[in-house]
Amino acid sequence: MVMESFSQILARHNLTLSRSKTDILQVNVGLLCNQSCRHCHLEAGPTRKEVMDRRTMDQIIAFAERGKFAIIDITGGAPEMVAGLEYLIESLAPLTQKLMLRSNLTALADRNHDGLLSLCQNHSVAIVASFPSTNERQTESQRGRGVLERSVEMLRKLNTLGYGRNGSRLELNLVSNPAGAFLPTSQCQAEKRFKQELNRKWSITFNNLHTFANIPLGRFGKWLTKSGNYEGYLQKLSDSFNPETLKGLMCRNLLSVSWDGYLYDCDFNQAAGLYLSSTPKHVSEMDTPPEYGTPIAVGDHCYACTAGSGFT
């Protein structure tokens, strides 16, 4: 069976994908990571050299000042491994209502990050941590040996600092991606179960759980091909296409900046090499966020965000 391309399915449903108000800035500070997760769409890992320098950070800070974003989201790789992260946090925090830091937990535990953690506390930086499963085998098959134990240890530490505790202003959210070529669990059901399990097994609390489908790009895309799962997975995603997800997709109100300062509609388009408005544009050349109605670059990987209840 020949699968319809993402552009074709949009056309068949009489839909177009364009930007609404851009109020989230996602800053990818680099592809260096202490882990080589098998589902990583960016192929981040310990041997990657692509890391944001101070000049690009300053250009992003200047843009954030002009753009007045409601949310700024720092991601990687492992942002904790990037020199200057503390500077970036300190500079961006006053420019937004909510600053988020994505962490794989083990990178946060790897070195003594007490300075970084107190900085996050002081600026009420929300921590978004990868935690695919409460099951050791599933977690380690995706993220590497020993990751569950070390992640649990770090979550406990975050809890003691007030993160994810009832009534605390310090937000701790978890992200779970499936450990394979299958769709994610419904967010609502998974959150309920994770809350029970984490509390029962380790007395850990957190605020929200986000479940996302794996993106068929990068290391995960290669694994899909090598394991003979690529066509079946893409078919599963396209069979689950839900036109209702389009209005809430994150690419409609998010602008993604890569480690070298180039702009994309989302982190997945970064991995696919699809620039914002299909042209390389540097953050230093951008006066204001993209206009309402600007078309969003799409590829078949977009099926991962429109399957089921979608990636918002």
Binding site: S133, N135, R137, P178, A179, G180, L183, T185, Q189, A190
Partner: peptide
């Protein structure tokens, strides 16, 4: 098998 994984079960369960 697919449904169990997608509903959040693991291979041990």
């Amino acid at each position: 098998t697919g449904a169990c994984l997608e509903k959040g079960s693991n291979s041990a369960e």
